[in-house]
Design a protein around this nucleic acid. Structure first.
Lengths: 412, 412
DNA sequence: ATCTTTAGTTGGGACGGTAAACGAACTAAG
DNA sequence: CTTAGTTCGTTTACCGTCCCAACTAAAGAT
């Protein structure tokens, strides 16, 4: 990929070719169906170059000819579209109460969407990894039975993941220093495709970005713990040590309620799923610890009561929304995203959360009109992080890491 | 410049050449003096390619041969260094109480550092622009008299600047919708070099980065207003509308003291220069509005009293440090920078600010050891923003936008 | 004096983008 | 039906850049 950007790497012809292949591929993805002439006119590449690049992409089975245009002056154009059939990108998510698998084709169409209940034993990641590997094997086999080559697999984990795929810390899972990438690679028999591990919020925001097209975007995971996936200027923001987006433990009030992290007044203590359930459904979970497997039904119940305009639930939701707005105002002042998408349990409850959150945000933003930050419900469901994992594989393709040609070049 | 990064632009050989020229130039800057063979070995470029690139850089007068190595086995190497003499990068800063001009040579050596007192009339930017243009002309003339070509000029403004160089809002100057780039370009007679306008904090952090080498860095401007210049993953973070880094108006406490922006509990109301002076020097400025021209002497006085361990001043500084640590903990949780540099009046007072700020930061960070964030005094003085303006010009050179060759290619 | 080691240049080859010309396939109009 | 005009995509010749291998150059080591 060639851009006006700093990078210590020198460039050669392969980079030029890879860059231009990716340019053409992205154009086909976003403008399909389109002709070679369209591509040349829009990208500025020479017609001959585009022909050569398209031939290459067809040999790699990334692009397909679909037929001629008609009823136009001049020679009809051969239209091109992404070839969805020969490839698949797989994303997995492990969370406190479920495993998810998603597969997408090149165009981002969903090929597979599985979810299964799961409860791991804290401190015993081995069993969880075995379950994850089993799910991965089933998803990969299904793709391969359909004749698709798996381009890559990315696992979303609710915790801090380093660049080598080691889970430094995942409090909800009770994991500490787990080399998930290595273990899973071994469990899957050293597969040929790249296997990556990433934070769930950082992946979910990728999936959200593919739908929203915004280059400055934040995705908030709404669950027992709250995380933020941040994209600035089109690139994911991870921070120096990967701690960026620790949204749940933003200190809002040193005199606030006790948080699971041991401090007081974290956002999570106000707006985490546990706090919401305690405030909205005081009959449950005040005395006993909340079980992750109960979160789903509780959220459904809160949603039902909110629609029925239960005053206690509405008050609880307004309260959560206000604190969310407060925390988002910090985000706006520091990062100024164009859009903040509410994910997790926030998504379904957003009709009751967004109005108080927006009011709070407006009252706390220095910039007029909240600096242009829009608050929206996520376009994704609970498979967001897994879909983001698959999206990450597709993003690598878009960035120019293409599979090699499969058919021999045609004789002339 | 060629990197593994998304970008819609197709690439051709000119991009390859520009990328590799920049790679070699950066290597010479950071490893000078070095030989062609060193460059080839370190960058992975072919020896022949390096020779060709170096010849090109010498013709552009960006690099110079300085002499042979001695006392080694094998043929002695011809050492290369940056040629500092034929170019200059100019940065200007306009602020409430002064104008600053800085010029740097290619290697970042300071050629010029001017500062003059200045008080503008709010709502009347014309006079300020005339003063700024006069200063710019003097700086440019001095460089040209020394035989240096000006590569670019960047102006730092304490306010919101859009991508076209229009100052949307600069509260301290009383500016609103001032097209500074256009006005200054006209006042300087449509110069050949690029003239840019940027926010002061965004520029100061560039200068700080050149000294600290950290790719995840925040620079805090400490003055009447507080701003943050943020660099994430080596790139400046501006946000969707340029509002990123509005550090001073982070809402810390809705019940806090009144801020100049009309809200309550902004960081600036606790840790802005006005708040510090009121707390540390209660004899001044309680009744009358503080004049910007008095800020410098007041800071000197506070510094003197702090060294003398005046209890009231020490208490005020500890208080400011605590609030600073609180705000920085928000930065750490969201952006996770490797380093936060305290600029402006914070710099000289940092011995009294950093300990309480660090304590507060540690108590509020979810990540162990504050997520690795170090709090340091800025390595720059009050010319930080102007130096950053000049640095921005040098960064463009580093990124591959090179001046054209000046000498004809040597006959062979 | 000759060998070894390292520095830098030269020439050939490959690759990939560019430009202009060309053939192909269509519509429009006499 | 014929001719002109339009547009698509390929062909051909060309050029610039990088790489490789062989070469020259200049020193110390033997």
């Amino acid at each position: 990929m060639i851009t006006r950007d700093s990078g210590p790497q020198p460039a050669d012809f392969a980079d030029v070719r890879a860059t231009n292949l990716a340019v053409v591929l992205r154009h086909v993805r976003t403008h399909a169906p389109c002709s070679r002439a369209d591509i040349a006119a829009t990208t500025g590449l020479n017609k001959a170059t585009v022909s050569s690049l398209v031939t290459d992409l067809i040999e790699r089975r990334l692009v397909r000819e679909v037929g001629m245009t008609e009823n136009r002056i001049g020679r009809p154009a051969m239209m091109l579209v992404l070839d969805g059939s020969p490839y698949a990108a797989v994303g997995l998510e492990i969370n406190t109460d479920y495993l998810t698998a998603v597969a997408l084709d090149l165009a981002g169409e969903r090929l597979l969407s599985w979810r299964r209940a799961f409860t791991g034993t804290p401190g015993q990641p081995g069993q969880a990894i075995a379950s994850l590997a089993a799910l991965a094997r089933r998803a990969v086999s299904k793709m391969e039975r359909e004749g698709r080559q798996v381009l890559g697999l990315t696992v979303a984990v609710p915790g801090l993941v380093d660049a080598d795929g080691v889970v430094e810390l995942a409090a909800g899972l009770g994991w500490h220093q787990v080399d998930l990438r290595k273990s899973l690679t071994a469990a899957l028999g050293e597969p040929a495709y790249p296997l990556l591990v990433e934070n769930d919020a950082n992946l979910a925001v990728l999936a959200e970005q593919r739908l929203s097209f915004t280059p400055d975007l934040v995705y908030l995971t709404g669950g027992a713990s709250l995380g933020a996936g941040i994209i600035c200027d089109g690139r994911p923001l991870r921070g120096a040590r990967g701690f960026a987006g620790e949204f749940g433990h933003l200190p809002l009030d040193p005199a606030g309620p006790l948080c699971t992290c041991g401090r007081r007044g974290c956002l999570e203590a106000y707006a985490g799923l546990g706090a919401l359930i305690r405030a909205a459904l005081p009959d449950v979970g005040i005395e006993t610890a909340l079980s992750p497997s109960e979160f789903g039904p509780h959220v459904d119940e809160i949603h039902r009561l909110a629609k029925a305009e239960d005053p206690q639930v509405l008050t609880a939701l307004t309260d959560v929304g206000r604190h969310l707005g407060h925390a988002i105002s910090l985000l706006t002042n520091l990062i100024n995203p164009a859009c903040v998408a509410l994910g997790g349990y926030f998504t379904v409850l957003s009709p009751w959360l967004i109005p108080p959150a927006t009011a709070e945000l407006e009252s706390r933003s220095i910039a007029a009109n909240c600096g242009g930050t829009r608050l929206v419900a996520s376009a994704l469901d609970s498979s967001a992080a897994a879909a983001g994992g698959a999206t990450r594989v597709l993003d690598a393709i878009d960035a120019g890491v293409l599979p090699p040609p499969q058919t021999a070049p045609l004789p002339r």
